[in-house]
């Protein structure tokens, strides 16, 4: 009865996740096949997969701390082996929390928990926050962002209560920057880095929205690209190029069904071969706008 994941993207369905179906739809929209992998199925099935995605939601009810129970699940042992071997692995929102809690991210010391996704710090409010934000692609060697231009601004929604990347280890932050691991940062619609709410919607250090491992095959991101994979999903009041596209598509159903800003995260899987090392991390080291 078990599904074969050969050539497919496997989406890990821990109990309590709730974004698995639309994540599968977004992956299918780029022409790839995707299927759900129930957490207690045979992890050996994942070996043939094209990539693995940990979707958003509330795995294991966020018991103890978001992501921490799933991080101890046996399926993570298999994912550790796959990720170490260079298999593409993406954690979105709760999936990002799992990757941080399992020590895959930042992964400089593999499986050592060096980072945390702490409760949001916002102005005049606390807890859960759902809104559209702008991300800046920092031009790294990440497997999942290579279709974006350097410093490209990407509107996507966030929806979380614990999305603030923090570490106490300042050296670690520097190392991550140096390694080009900080791939996505919250910015204004023009791409400026402003640490104030709501541009930085959760108080994340350095406006970090997404971090990859050194090798670039594993990415943990708090925003939801699957909710920005069609133009119709983009709100009318979004600024910039995507806002303009959305505005022009109003009244034209077929254009509204075109791709949205987040789809390229998934489309990046269509690119064969390793990421070019030369793309570097030039955007990262810039001080401007901080």
């Amino acid at each position: 009865m078990a599904t074969s994941f050969k050539g497919k993207v496997a989406i890990i369905q821990f109990p309590g996740v709730n974004c698995e179906n639309e994540t599968a739809d977004a992956i299918r929209s780029v022409g790839l096949d995707a299927d759900l992998f129930r957490w207690n199925e045979d992890p050996g099935l994942l070996e043939e997969s094209l990539a693995v995605v940990l979707p958003g939601g509330f795995s294991y009810q966020d018991r103890i701390r978001a992501g921490v129970v799933a991080a101890k699940d046996t399926v993570m042992d298999a994912l550790s082996d796959l990720a170490s071997a260079g298999h593409p692995l993406l954690g979105i929102c709760n999936g990002a929390q799992v990757l941080v809690e399992s020590g895959f991210i930042p992964g400089i010391h593999w499986e050592r928990v060096d980072l945390a996704l702490a409760p949001n710090i916002m102005e005049d409010r606390e807890g859960y926050y759902c809104n559209w934000v702008y991300l800046r692609n920092e031009g790294s060697s990440c497997r999942w962002t290579r279709l974006f231009l350097e410093e490209e601004v990407i509107p996507v929604p966030i929806a979380h209560a614990e999305g603030r990347f923090v570490t106490r280890d300042e050296d670690l932050l520097e190392q991550m920057i140096k390694n080009g691991q900080i791939v996505l940062r919250y910015c204004t619609d023009r791409g400026d880095i402003d640490s104030a709410f709501p541009v930085n919607p959760n108080g994340s250090m350095e406006n970090i929205a997404g971090i990859c491992n050194r090798e670039g095959n594993v990415l943990a991101m708090m925003p939801h690209p699957e909710r920005a994979s069609w133009l119709r999903q983009v709100p009318e009041d979004i600024c910039g190029i995507w806002g303009k596209k959305r505005f022009q598509a109003a009244g034209d159903f077929s254009r509204m069904e075109d791709e949205g800003p987040g789809r390229r995260f998934f489309a990046s899987l269509l690119e064969k071969g390793p990421v070019s090392a030369s793309s570097g991390c030039s955007g990262q080291a810039k001080e401007g706008g901080r």
Partner: peptide
Amino acid sequence: FRHYDSEVQGRAVL
């Protein structure tokens, strides 16, 4: 409204 997830399932237009 921003306490609520209005985006999940990806179907929202307005």
